[in-house]
Design a protein around this nucleic acid. Structure first.
Lengths: 122, 122
DNA sequence: GCTTGACCTGGAGCCGACTCCAGGTGGGAT
DNA sequence: ATCCCACCTGGAGTCGGCTCCAGGTCAAGC
């Protein structure tokens, strides 16, 4: 089993994060220091990519970076923080739920507006 | 029928926009110039409040201010822009739909993660 | 053996959307 | 009368989250 690694370009391609964003995330500690080859270039592992997938989920659901940092720290501190991680993710899940609810509600209003415009213009 | 007006404080209370945000929106032209009393203080009409409700919907569903400005201009230009307004709102509605879909998808992943953590820690 | 292109660094810049500030005015309740 | 509080203005500041830049290093293909 080859311990395959990925170049920044490949990771950017795969995760949708820009090269700058990947470097930025490493700088602020959202990613642990990424491994390097002899020339000092980053080589991401499968695990890094998995973690970036998690980051992607949290970002896309509106979690601020500050909170993702807290989550990252919990992960680093080891297994005994799993209950805390669950709590954090559950709280976030509730916010996502609320977000969807709010979105749906506002969407209905927008659709009503469209309907109104249609009734006026026809 | 009294043409009732509202103070900035009341409008802020009712719409959830801060006083500064209300002034900001007027400055950038998202609100038309708000009426004033003798002392130069703003007095919002029911219509202003209705428009702010629309703004609230669009903001909360992620429309950038630049696009709300375009919409505001259409509204100002009169009835003949109604088809354009419909088009704009429909495009936005599609984005909202996509947003909800993405949110749901990511939420599922987060819930799976929670489930995984539970399976590990129990 | 040279070019090309992907990568490196530290630091500055940008963008959207507010938010705050200083210094000033006016009006209603006590 | 006086106090206080809500309001006013123009302009500066903040914040989150990237994004860009200059100047440099390697590696591989032609």
């Amino acid at each position: 089993m080859s311990t395959s690694v990925y170049t920044p370009g490949q990771v950017s391609e795969e995760t949708g994060f820009s090269l700058d964003t990947l470097r930025y995330y490493e700088r602020i500690g959202l990613l642990e220091p990424i491994g390097r080859n002899a020339a000092g270039q980053r080589r991401f592992t499968q695990e890094d990519i998995g973690w970036l997938g998690m980051i992607r989920c949290l970002r896309d659901t509106g979690m601020p970076i500050a909170e993702m940092l807290r989550f990252a720290e919990l992960v680093r501190k080891g297994e005994h923080t799993i209950p805390d991680r669950i709590a954090l993710l559950e709280a976030h899940d509730r916010r996502v739920e609320a977000q969807v609810g709010n979105l749906r509600e506002k969407q209905t209003a927008i659709r009503n507006k469209i309907g109104y415009y249609r009734s006026v213009s026809c």
